[in-house]
Each structure stands twice: as structure tokens, then as C-alpha cells.
């Protein structure tokens, strides 16, 4: 059963079309990722799901409830963690948790057990009486997550939860999300970090208010029609210019000290040697790699698969 259904949702801010008719469906208990750069429309969609925004057209249902009509019912079963840290910095960890438990009217007798569980995975118990404003970035995110989970929501909506958090804390955060999903909670999470896509059950690649590709990370990568090679050596700029003139080349992306080049068909070893000779790239090394989400995304951005 679909826990969240987004049907042809569009939203325009003045001249900007933030969402251009987006449709997706999330299964119950699924960890669904919205992957895309800033300004792709992820936040607009998430805010609409949380009943904070009313789309111009289209419909969204959360657990069978309509976002424009059943606002209180949705708010009771939904946990939301906005993009920015939005807890009370001048209240302590325990006071923040208590405040949100109060607002969601969590029964008193259930609280010790829930808090124990939240403190267990967030490991914030030793910092209970510390002011939220004095926590590290990673701890703040875990506190925000704990507050969003205090009423054990059926669906958890997270807007770029790992933004600006160090890599270790990011990994830890994802592990927590996996634990929560294992408990049966549906999670919709957005991120601009492409490497986090593999953490999700299914993803939607967002670009300019539209979904460019959707499916499991493996399926999205598997649907990529071209062969991807990682090229390294010297004079990468010249190599890039040279390859752009070759008919088999579909796309070239610069990845640090290497080029990721997608080809419509696998070049033969002769072709490689021919290129190295003709172009004068003596130290050229190449290896075939499986495409990453980033390759797929950049290819979509460049309009290569269109």
C-alpha cells in the first residue's frame, strides 16, 4: 500500500516554477530519497507534504489523508525536520524534548520508555541538560530528529538532515535512519549529497522542479544506457577537448583528478591506443567503472539521455 502519494503537483513562486508536475508514490516502511541540487524543488515538495504549503495544482495524500483537508490529522502522524536547525537554542536538550512531547500530547506513562529509546540511538543522554545552542552540528541534527520522532510518527519527513554535518556524523545519522525504518516508519529524506543516494531504498532524481529518474539506486544506475570510463593522466583539459570531438562520446564530467566519460558503446583497446597516440596523451590510463548516481545525475543535467 502506498503511504504517500504525490500526484502531478505544481507550485509556482512568482516567475519561478518550483515544481512542474511531480508525481511519486512511497511504500509504507520505505526509505525514499529526493536527490538533487539546491533549488531543484525538494524543499517545496517536502513542505507541501507537511501541510505547510498548498500546491497550485495536483494532490498529495499521506496515509490516505488529503493535505489540503486533513491538516490536523496529518500533523498528528507526521514528523518533520526542517532544513535549518529549528529547535530552541536557549532550551536544554531535555527541555526541547519535553516541549515537543507536550505539544504532541505524548502520554506521561509512555515517556520514559520513548526517551530511553531516543537517547539510546542519539547518544544524547549525557548532554541532557546542555543548551541546544551549545551542541555540535551532528548532535543538533540528532536532537532535531529525536524531537521529530517524539510522537512516534508513521511518516518521517527530513529536509537535508545531513547538510553541513561532518562525514562521520553523516554516516552515523544514516545508520539511525536505517534503525528507524526497521521499526516500520516511512521516511522521506532529501539530500544534495549524491553519495547518500545509495543509502535509500528508492530515489527520485530532482532537477529543475521535475523528476529526472526514479527507482532503486541500482535500477537508476542500471538504466543508464552508456558505458562509463574513468580516465586519468596529465593534461586532462586537452584530453577533454580531444574527446569531445569523438562520435562515440556521450558525456564528459570532471571528477577531481580524473574524467568520467560515458560512451555509447564500449571502445576497443585499439581505439584507446589510437586516441592516446593521435592526441598525444602518453600517460593515459583508463578503466571501466559502474556509473555512480552522480554520473547519472550529471548526464541528466547535461541533457544527454533526453
Amino acid at each position: 500500500m502506498h503511504h504517500l502519494i504525490v500526484d502531478n503537483v505544481a507550485k509556482t513562486y512568482g516567475e519561478t516554477r518550483a515544481l512542474k508536475g511531480v508525481s511519486l508514490a512511497v511504500e509504507k516502511g520505505e526509505l525514499f530519497g529526493l536527490i538533487g541540487p539546491d533549488g531543484a524543488g525538494k524543499t517545496t515538495l517536502l513542505r507541501s507534504i507537511c501541510t505547510l504549503l498548498v500546491p497550485d495544482s495536483g494532490s498529495i495524500t499521506v496515509a490516505g489523508l488529503d493535505i489540503s483537508r486533513d491538516v490536523p490529522a496529518i500533523r498528528a502522524i507526521l514528523g518533520y525536520m526542517p532544513q535549518r536547525f529549528s529547535l530552541y537554542q536557549d532550551l536544554s536538550v531535555a527541555q526541547n524534548l519535553r516541549f515537543f512531547a507536550d505539544l504532541f500530547q505524548v502520554p506521561k506513562h509512555e515517556r520514559p520508555e520513548r526517551l530511553a529509546r531516543l537517547y539510546h540511538f542519539s547518544r544524547l543522554e549525557p548532554f541532557k541538560s546542555r543548551l541546544a545552542g551549545n551542541l555540535s552540528g551532528g548532535m543538533k541534527q540528532k536532537l532535531a530528529l529525536s524531537c521529530a520522532l517524539i510522537h512516534t510518527p508513521e511518516i518521517l519527513v527530513l529536509d537535508e538532515p545531513t547538510f553541513g554535518v561532518d562525514p562521520v556524523s553523516r554516516q552515523e545519522f544514516w545508520e539511525i535512519l536505517h534503525q528507524i525504518r526497521a521499526g516500520g516508519t516511512t521516511i522521506v529524506v532529501s539530500t544534495a549529497y549524491m553519495d547518500e543516494a545509495d543509502q535509500c531504498d528508492r530515489i527520485a532524481l530532482f532537477f529543475e522542479g521535475e523528476i529526472a529518474a526514479m527507482g532503486s539506486p541500482a535500477a537508476v544506475k542500471g538504466a543508464f544506457p552508456y558505458r562509463v570510463y574513468r580516465l586519468s593522466g596529465t593534461a586532462l583539459q586537452d584530453l577533454k577537448t580531444f574527446l569531445e570531438g569523438q562520435p562515440e562520446v556521450r558525456g564528459i564530467q570532471l571528477f577531481g583528478d580524473a574524467l568520467h566519460v560515458s560512451f555509447s558503446e564500449k571502445p576497443s583497446p585499439e581505439t584507446w591506443r589510437e586516441w592516446a597516440r593521435r592526441g598525444g596523451f602518453p600517460g593515459l590510463r583508463w578503466e571501466e567503472i559502474s556509473p555512480s548516481i552522480e554520473d547519472v545525475f550529471l548526464a541528466h543535467m547535461a541533457g544527454e539521455t533526453a
Partner: peptide
Amino acid sequence: EVGTLEQLMVTPLS
């Protein structure tokens, strides 16, 4: 400004 209003708005608080 701090963003807590957005958080409050998704609570059942009217």
C-alpha cells in the same frame, strides 16, 4: 527567524 515557527507549525498546535 530561528526557524522554530516552522517546527511548531507541523505540531497539532492551532
